[in-house]
Amino acid sequence: MEHVVELENVTKNFKDFSVNNINLQVKKGFVTGFIGANGAGKTTTIKLMMNLLKPDAGEVKVFGMDYKTHEKAMKERMGFVYDGNVFFEGLNLLDIKRIVGPSYKQWDDKLFYQYMEQFELPLKKAIKTFSKGMQMKASLAIALSHHAELIIMDEPTAGLDPIFRRELLDLLQELMVDGNRTIFFSTHMTTDLNRIADYLAFINRGELIFNQSIHDIAENYALVKGRMDLLDRDTEKALIRVHRAPTGFEALTGNVQQAKKIFGDSVVIEQASLEDIMVYMKEGVQRV
């Protein structure tokens, strides 16, 4: 399968934080959700993809090209939606279009006006008067108006009300009908992902824990519940993280088959929600 974005052993260090040795492939034609708690390294990873940050080690490739030699060609084909507004806040959309439009070879004015109408965005109002949802739509309209093949979004649903959030997710789903398009978006809300993501990449404390299809995740991860006396060094090998309580344990496994083999019918195995996985993983993988 073709990869649109490839991060190979990418490391970036800051004074009090770092992302370590990230290996991440984003598959062409799919929606990849990028989850992690606040401060896990999502924005840093996205900035590395956009070349806003340069990795200390490793390689970032988009469309199989690297930023050293093909920066412009790469960005021509990329669209971006950031958490906050990055457009000049005092300007209206018409002026922003005048600045942003000509920078893209593939800019499509007609398409832009079409999206303005579809998203019901005012052309002559300063962008700082826009609500969060309108700003999001404006960014998205701009990304779509230059026929971006890859749209990278940093927390596009954060701060949106539930109705608007669903509207945005529906919209993204519609966009995916065009099989050439790839969407990579970060979020800390697992409910977003169940709706539209095909693949899930999970980052925790600067480390990529997994990048799998939703289907595989549902198949591999599960919650295991049972009596305390079932736990010992050997049985715990099948578990990623165990919560102990006097009444029994509850644990996350990343290998349902192995857990079934070890525990048999003595435990209850339930499907793990994305939130369960996130909460268990956040505490760190337990090394037994």
Binding site: N51, E71, V86, F87, F88
Partner: peptide, 18 residues
């Protein structure tokens, strides 16, 4: 006054410019 803002730099660098 515009260019010193972080957002402006993020915008310009996300557009196809080096």
């Amino acid at each position: 006054a515009y260019d010193e803002k972080v957002e402006t730099n993020i915008l310009l660098n996300s557009l196809p410019y080096t």
